[in-house]
Design a protein around this nucleic acid. Structure first.
Length: 433
RNA sequence: GCGAACGUGGUGAAGUGGUUAACACAUCUGGCUGUGAACCAGACACUCGUGAGUUCGAUUCUCAUCGUUCGCCCCA
């Protein structure tokens, strides 16, 4: 039979790597909980409108990267390309904003789907962890979200994370700026790339992060958003910067940072990190403030701010920098029945150690040489070998061998858990010292 | 979506238009019927990504296709 392979752009996670994902996600989750965020799990499938209205028709994600299809009932569905729009839908539908205290603070974790060309650090199905803080418009709210993300990256052991920061201003600022950009580019657009020509019509802000060298020459002289901000937006951005400085969170202003999702306004940011091997996986996380998103989805006009991390990219960076402890295959005991007749007794010992002792226990099911069993035990990282032979089974006992020190002794069944407890307690004391 | 490179066992990898596809690691078997090493002797690529073409003959040449990686675009 022909082997069926995984779908392009997807990847299997197993073995030690699976542990790495668990580890990264658990750190993120526990820190989000310290910041008083609560978990939320929106469905993977949403009506396509959630994203076309939420993320925006002019974004690349909606225009060419969504997994959209009709289901058997003729519904127009999309596998989520990001979480934020779906979470807004969830909040609006369930009226979670009807509470006596905002912001509503939510975190999420799960797969998202984008139909893109796979590359290093880029997948069609990948995992995001992120938060949304909804319903409070203060600059401090933006700052707290950035602080949360920064804390997570530090806790994972990443040093020298670069935070790129910019502001897109409020509606008025952006309208003014957009107008200014259109005026500026009117004389140049004929000579610029095709992409820029369509950006000129759809969203002139996006011309700013064009990478074509000739276009960059032109962009260099383009007006800067700073000069078109309303007084309120300007003050807000200054507040953000002051607070970040006060919290000792390093950042750099990048005026070309405009983000590809239409719902952003005011503060936007990206987290960049280059691993020690020099690999650049792109931004490991990004986010920003959004003013009108909830309204676009039929809810009240509540602003929000959030970020998301790309788990794959973060795991890759941590792996490159040797920050992942490979603790797979840790085992307390490996049970070795020496003959057919000892099988049942060995299984009883295994159950006892697991259920009453709380130890992680595996057993050899194969009829193989004892030497081989020992090799397997050490491959699995077992601390103890539990040998069950004819003599031992007859006397309700086992041979307990410490695989590190090679010491072994025959232990009665009723004493075995005490023996193990004694050993692991003293181990714990050692590590505490 | 555009441009480029690559695709040999579980892993790392040599290699050639021609009857058995190196080598190493890992794994398994036996030497050693109740103790983890070493050693010795064996085993281990049912399509050399897939399909088609050129050829007497292709893993090696050509084309297509799929996949991976890199650059662009965009993004996490």
């Amino acid at each position: 039979m022909e082997i069926i392979k995984n779908v392009k752009g997807t990847h299997d996670i197993f073995g030690g790597e699976s542990n790495s994902y668990d580890y990264v996600e658990s750190i993120m989750k526990s820190i989000a909980e310290l910041y008083a965020y609560n978990g939320v799990r929106p469905p993977v499938l949403e009506y396509s409108q959630v994203f076309s209205r939420g993320v925006g028709e002019s974004s690349d994600i909606v225009r060419k990267e969504m997994y959209t299809f009709p289901d058997k009932g003729g519904r127009d569905l999309t596998l989520r390309p990001e979480f934020t729009a779906g979470i807004m839908r969830l909040v609006v539908q369930n009226k979670l904003y009807a509470t006596n205290e905002l912001p509503l603070k939510l975190y999420y974790n799960g797969p998202v789907f984008r139909y893109e060309r796979p590359q290093l650090g880029r997948y069609r199905q990948f995992n995001q962890f992120g938060v949304e803080s909804i319903g409070n418009n203060s600059a401090m709210n933006d700052v707290e979200v950035i602080a949360l993300a920064y804390t997570i990256l530090c806790s994972l052991g990443l040093e020298d994370v670069t935070i790129k920061l910019n502001t897109l201003g409020d509606d008025e600022s952006r309208n003014n700026y957009r107008k200014a950009l259109k005026e500026f580019f009117a004389n140049h657009i004929e000579n610029m790339c095709e992409d820029c020509k369509s950006r000129y019509e759809l969203n002139p802000l996006r011309i700013l992060d064009c990478k074509v060298p000739e276009d960059q020459e032109i962009v260099k002289d383009a007006p800067s958003i700073g000069n078109y901000l309303t007084e309120a937006s300007k003050l807000r951005f200054e507040d953000v910067q002051d607070a970040l400085s006060a919290l000792h969170i390093p950042y750099e202003i990048d005026e070309s940072l405009v983000r590809g999702l239409d719902y952003y306004s005011e503060t936007v940011f990206e987290f960049h990190y280059k691993s020690k091997t020099g690999q650049d996986y792109g931004a490991v996380g990004a986010g920003g403030h959004y003013g009108k998103l909830m309204m676009e989805l039929g809810g009240p006009e509540l602003p929000g701010v959030g970020f998301s991390f790309g788990i794959e990219r973060i795991v890759s960076v941590l792996k490159d920098d040797g920050l992942l402890v490979d603790k797979n295959n840790e085992l307390d005991c490996y049970i070795m029945p020496l003959g057919e007749n000892e099988r049942l007794f060995a299984e009883e010992v295994a159950v006892l150690l697991r259920n009453s002792g709380g130890y992680r226990v595996d057993m050899c099911f194969d009829k193989t040489k004892v030497g081989n069993m020992f090799k397997r035990a050490s491959n699995k990282g077992a601390k103890f070998a539990v040998i069950v032979g004819e003599e031992e089974a007859k006397n309700d006992s086992v041979v307990l061998k410490n695989l590190a020190t090679q010491e072994q002794e025959t232990v009665k069944l009723e004493n075995i858990i005490d023996k193990l407890d004694e050993f692991f307690d003293s181990q714990e004391e050692e590590t505490q010292k």
